[in-house]
Design a protein around this nucleic acid. Structure first.
Lengths: 118, 118
DNA sequence: TTACAATATTACTAAATAATAATATTGGAA
DNA sequence: TTCCAATATTATTATTTAGTAATATTGTAA
């Protein structure tokens, strides 16, 4: 590890990039889109319909994910189909949920302890 | 999977919670703090010093991480030591970086292809 | 060509976030 | 008690982000 992380451009750039990436995953609608794309590609209108989002808003979120390299688009006629670039993204989301679950469990145990203090 | 995710309160709440969690990981300074805490607990002033952050800003970021259950505090005299609640968080961060690396690699290959078109 | 459907983009507004500076709290030592 | 160091909190401002509505683009079919 670096002694002075703030003066180490390379290291702090890594965290900058990582933060940018995490921002894409920090919105419930985008997470739903990723979840929907798990089972295969879908068109914008399909996503928009199943998630109950406005068309323009769906396109905007897809653009964010596309710019981050998380999804990619394929045009077929007048439709545009989106899919996950890699299964790894979905796996990362799974892991995040697992981490959260573990945390909530710990907290639940704490609540139990709080209640048991007599 | 649910046919209508937007009308399924439980499912969308999950993504809401997940998004909140990801927001904590969506800031380079907080990622640096998490990284620093990997090797063991550190006081606020230690973190503030090694990362080159203002004291109040460090406290604020630690509060965000604390509220999310990512770090926990322990007071020892006038110092407050923070540590990661679980190693899993650090592992999740590792995985995210790995996913990013894979993506950048793919992009790099694409750049190569672009250049090779003659 | 015109008309229409699907998607993308833009302009705008509202809400959330981060940073700074200032102030408050807490604990230890004189 | 008073003073000081460490930490937390608050108020304020600037920046970023999300959503909506409107408009632009693209492709297909008549």
């Amino acid at each position: 590890m670096c002694a002075n992380m703030d003066t180490d451009t390379t290291t702090s750039e890594v965290f900058q990039v990582q933060a940018e990436f995490c921002k894409c995953l920090a919105d419930p609608k985008r997470l739903m889109i990723i979840h929907e794309l798990r089972l295969g590609e879908k068109s914008v209108s399909e996503l928009s319909g199943s998630l109950g989002l406005k068309q323009s808003n769906t396109s905007q979120h897809l653009a964010v994910l596309r710019n981050a390299g998380i999804v990619e688009a394929r045009r077929e006629g007048s439709l545009v189909f989106y899919k996950l670039v890699s299964e790894k993204i979905a796996q990362a989301c799974d892991l995040v949920r697992e981490v959260i679950a573990t945390h909530l469990q710990k907290r639940q145990l704490l609540v139990k302890d709080l209640r048991q203090v007599k």
